[in-house]
Amino acid sequence: MALTRNESAPLFSSDTANTLRLIAYLALAIALMVIDHRNGWLVQVRYFASAAVEPMYRLAALPSRLARSAGDAMSDRARLNTRNAELERELLLAQARLNRLQSVRDQNERLQQLLEAQRSLDLGVQLARIIDVDTDPFRHRVTIDAGARQGVAVGEAVLDAHGVMGQIVEVLPNTSTVMLITDPAHALPVKSERTGLRAIARGNGALDSLELQNVPISADIKPGDMLVTSGLGGHFPAGFPVGTIGSIRNDASGMFAVATVTPSAALDRSGEVLILHNLPDPVGPPAPAPAEGPPAESAPANKAPNP
């Protein structure tokens, strides 16, 4: 059918670029965006389209995975040797720590059994891989290879060996999308480990820094302070490392200080991450204490085999 029109005069091609049709399509697109933005039921559409989306993700991630393994194969022997020695040393340290934690965990489990407080052990941690797909360079999101079928749900916290990475924002059957803590749309309640000062860490669009805004000038913070999640707001369990304070300056108004934070998690690397499943919600108003204690204690024990 196309053959007949193939050599037709290009001067009349503006027929296909009818302004009315453009307006109709633009209106349709805008309507879609508004609906998607307002009540997100188009996530459902994406969920069902995922049969096509997921193989595409894996295919797109293939070249970089191949490149990485090729790089591994070609990296020179000396560097591998030093790296090996370094890792062995680290492993030894980690092993020692792990053994200690193991005994602590055993003890903890015995005590928990004594108290018959099994509920608090329901904290589930799941390992997932980043499948190297970046869907938009100006939003900080990564795709991981665990989804609804693996029990992942929207809002769950994602950690790596060093600290908090982000949270799940979208779940497909076998993959899900993680919004990193450095995404400009992300905010994370933190507290200073040294002083207990509470603050909100916002992403500022750079992959290697966060910002604490509206910190009182008189507040006791200084460069080098460690920040951990405060557990307020309910999305992230308390006590996981977020980052260290790099520099502090006054904000534009001069009324508050702004601190720059270097995230502890290796956000620009790819590899394994831990998804922290939500604790089962108790019925009625929750008792604050048990929801806060156990994650900090049992997570390192689960986390340790990772490196």
Binding site: S13, S14, A17, L22, Y25, I30, L32, M33
Partner: peptide
Amino acid sequence: DVFSGDLLGEQALRLCVFCFILLRFRA
């Protein structure tokens, strides 16, 4: 849009504008 997981309709709108201008000035 479905692949990139952003706002549904965003690329559709941009591509429509792009192609409209292109079709207009194609000759």
